[in-house]
Design a protein around this nucleic acid. Structure first.
Lengths: 135, 135
DNA sequence: TTACATAGTGTTATATTATAACAACTAAAA
DNA sequence: TTTTAGTTGTTATAATATAACACTATGTAA
């Protein structure tokens, strides 16, 4: 019982919630996830938040901080949630994960005034997506 | 009555709240601000949030999205909240605004796969500050 | 196998962060 | 003076997130 998901060792709740987020074309919010998985036996916010925390930790999903929403990682190179970058359209709210080696190298090597390197970053760009620009 | 703050046309509430944040060495959260300004007549969350919204809009303060906290802008070049970058220490929670022309130029010129430029960004680096590294 | 450690679950209650709606007031400009 | 846009004060409530506790499942090592 409670078999782990083969590919990534997800538990039942984690898998239910990951699958929902993964199928979604846009970021999902915690309580919207909750409403969508209640028929599958996940009844309380904490069950959702715990799964989300774990999924973020292992890099299967990312949190869009400015939106309090969660998106599946489609960037094969990001095994852990340590270097994330997104574009966010301020009209249609479409969020896209950026996978630019130039950008990630630049940021991974960034040092502050004291010469300190930082182990993680999260970058969010805001503006208009192509579709909304053309309207 | 209700004189504007000379330098930046802040209203009374905006000035009270800006002064508090500006004096603080670390980011402040909305409800912590509320408790600190109740003696000055600001009694309700909305009064705080409205002032915060305005101060963010005009670039006098920035929101640290990953912490739901607000910090005064000490970067003379950032008149508007359109290009922000911070380092955040995961131990002591010290937050520092980065003012690196190299970084800001790099990010301001970033284009996504479709060649789209974005009008705003927010970047948060996480790691250890110098002090915490030495401990 | 048993014992142990680690991690996940289900549950209730509650804390924290943020906004809706509405009436009134203020400041600046036409 | 009238209008306009923005801010204020207020009550209520929505949305986001965690504390605490008892219990269950799984992996590992004696």
């Amino acid at each position: 019982m409670n078999k782990m998901h083969k590919e990534h060792n997800l538990t039942k709740n984690q898998k239910i919630i990951f699958d929902l987020i993964d199928k979604s074309s846009q970021p999902l919010k915690a309580y919207s996830i909750l409403y969508n998985v209640q028929k599958k036996g996940i009844k309380a916010p904490l069950q959702v938040y715990r799964a989300l925390d774990k999924l973020v930790e292992i890099g299967k999903i990312h949190k869009i901080e400015s939106r309090n929403a969660f998106i599946a990682c489609h960037n094969s190179s990001c095994q852990v949630a340590k270097a994330t970058a997104f574009t966010i359209c301020e009209i249609c709210e479409k969020v896209t994960e950026i996978s630019s080696t130039g950008l990630s190298k630049y940021l991974a090597n960034f040092k502050d005034k004291d010469g300190m390197k930082y182990s993680k970053y999260n970058l969010e760009f805001f503006g208009l997506c192509k579709k909304c620009t053309l309207k």
